[in-house]
Design a protein around this nucleic acid. Structure first.
Length: 488
RNA sequence: GCCCCCUUCGUCUAGCGGCCCAGGACAUCGCCCUUUCAAGGCGGCGGCGCGGGUCCGAAUCCCGCAGGGGGCGCCA
């Protein structure tokens, strides 16, 4: 085999959004090309006029971009390359490696239904196989509808060395004369793929296991065309929890869904790469650059993988953690603005710099981008009231008067703190003697007043970020709320 | 019905004849740390589908079985 510069491709059909399996296929092809300094091309297989959609095509492109998988060439649309497929089909026709078939879909469908009843498999009966060339041409010229079928060579077999499965063999006689050009002039999948992979100089094809049975057909076409076939690698499927091929009924399978759910590309790429591929027995944290560096076709797995969102979440948190705060906060900011409409952000806090300080105090807590809402919604608005349950719990634990007094005393102390820093605030409160309450209790009251909840980032950092005025206002407000309530 | 692929903890996986009475990670459970929640540390639970071979020795090789998955369109 000649030494050629590696060329891989991702060739989705625009009939829906980019799903998990497709995303992984794209990733693998991208990594393989980049690893070997080759090109990664994008081809849109839109030969099904009934099911294509412009939106799907756009969605796929945008998901690919979201993942950071930039293609070097394309996108090429098969629907705009019809003359090319026609040319190759004519060539096969003239060499008697393909023939016109005038059988109606109705006739074949009836036949197929019959066979299915007693057995279940069906193959074209080759009725038009031996049609006289003159007659065939005449019927075609007269406007009769026809398809072009590939003539499977009698006997023989095809075999190829798969990158993940090793040598695979297929007997020709299990194949029937499949259609390569439909009656509407469009090429069928197996034909267009072979023609394009050849035309575009594709050297390696990495795709899902579900394509192994298509491979012999494509190989036969390469053979008939007299051109070299690319190498293949059939990676195992990605399964749903029920261990069947991942599909819409498994729920969230589109990449777009994950973006909206607050996952970041670094995690998606990292996790997907590990479904059907691994480096060794311990390394599992990878950036895209590291994947390109370490990727190897010899490390493909052979067993189907069940998609586990829990592990994806873990990777999301891991990547978020290692990210520079500026980058992370920008992701959080953009996500919040776009996908968390219920997060109330007062105009004066709608600012990237401010988000950066809030994201910073949220620390390692974010698992998904949207978690910022749970941990810090109270940092973005001053207009909230304290939940009755929280107020009642405080009254129950401390008594209304004592709690209010403690809060007011803390306010007084905080008001007088010289340097308003997390460390100073903490040390002052740690040493304060207030209502005989220990530090932990004081912190609980503080947290309640500042965040209106019982869970929050480090409370002194919250206070520092809120600033003296906002903090004091909240502490006094809670005290007042308790007093008013108990007075009733 | 035919063809093809696959089979290690619940899940993702390492393992390619002795280093494995099977290692890592997620999940889960417990403990520690601790101002809450996370994070982190430590520990527990948990697996080689079954049956035959081959070999001094098998998760690793061979055969059979069972199970699972994929494909068999004028869909891709």
């Amino acid at each position: 085999m000649s030494e050629r510069r590696v060329v891989t491709r991702f060739a989705p059909s625009p009939t829906g959004y980019l799903h998990i399996g497709g995303a992984r296929t794209a990733l693998f092809n991208y990594l393989y090309a980049k690893k070997y300094g080759g090109r990664f091309i994008l081809r849109i297989e839109d030969t099904d006029t009934a099911r294509n959609s412009e939106e799907a095509s756009e969605a796929i492109l945008s998901s690919l971009k979201w993942m950071g998988l930039d293609w070097d060439d394309g996108p090429f649309y098969q629907s705009r390359r019809l003359d090319i497929y026609r040319k190759y089909a004519e060539k096969l026709l003239s060499e008697k490696k393909a023939y016109r078939c005038f059988c109606t879909a109705e006739r074949l469908e009836a036949q197929r239904a019959g066979k299915r009843a007693d057995g279940g498999f069906w193959a074209y009966d080759r009725l038009c196989h031996s049609l006289d060339e003159a007659e065939s041409r005449a019927r075609a010229d007269s406007g009769e509808k026809y398809v072009i079928r590939f003539s499977i060579p009698d006997g023989g077999a095809v075999s190829f060395n798969d990158m993940v499965h090793g040598v695979l063999n297929f007997q020709n006689d299990v194949l029937d004369d499949f259609i390569i050009i439909k009656s509407d002039g469009m090429p069928t999948y197996n034909f267009a793929v072979a023609v394009d992979d050849h035309e575009m100089g594709v050297t390696h094809v990495i795709r899902g296991d579900d394509h192994v049975s298509n491979t012999p057909k494509q190989l036969l076409i390469f053979g008939a065309l007299g051109v070299e076939a690319p190498g293949y690698g059939h990676v195992p499927m990605i399964l749903g929890q029920d261990k069947t091929k991942l599909s819409k009924r498994h729920g969230a399978t589109s990449l777009g869904w994950y973006e909206e759910a607050g996952f970041i590309r670094e995690a998606a790429v990292n996790y997907l790469a590990l479904l059907g591929w691994s480096l060794d027995d311990k390394t599992e944290f990878f950036t895209l650059a590291e994947l390109i560096d370490k990727f190897s076709e010899s490390r493909f797995g052979r067993t189907p993988a069940v998609f586990d969102i829990k592990k994806l979440e873990y990777f999301n948190q891991s990547h978020l953690k290692t990210m520079e705060i500026g980058v992370r906060s920008e992701l959080v900011y953009n996500y919040a603005k776009k996908y968390i409409p219920e997060l109330k952000i007062d105009e004066k806090y709608d600012d990237l710099e401010y988000f950066k300080s809030v994201t910073a105090i949220a620390g390692d807590r974010l698992r998904l981008l949207g978690d910022i809402k749970n941990y810090a919604w109270f940092m973005f608005t001053d207009e909230f009231s304290y939940p009755a349950e929280l107020r009642d719990k405080i009254i129950k634990d401390h008594g209304a008067e004592a709690a209010a007094r403690a809060l007011r005393q803390m306010a007084e102390i905080i008001e007088g703190v010289g340097e308003f820093s997390p460390a100073d605030l903490e040390s002052v409160l740690r040493n304060a003697k207030i209502e005989n309450l220990n530090f932990s209790k004081l912190v609980f009251l503080l947290r309640s007043s500042l965040s209106a909840q019982t869970v929050s980032p480090g409370i002194f950092e919250v206070m520092y970020t809120l600033g003296r005025a906002r903090s004091l206002e909240r502490i006094k407000r809670l005290a007042a709320a308790i007093e008013v309530h108990s007075a009733q």
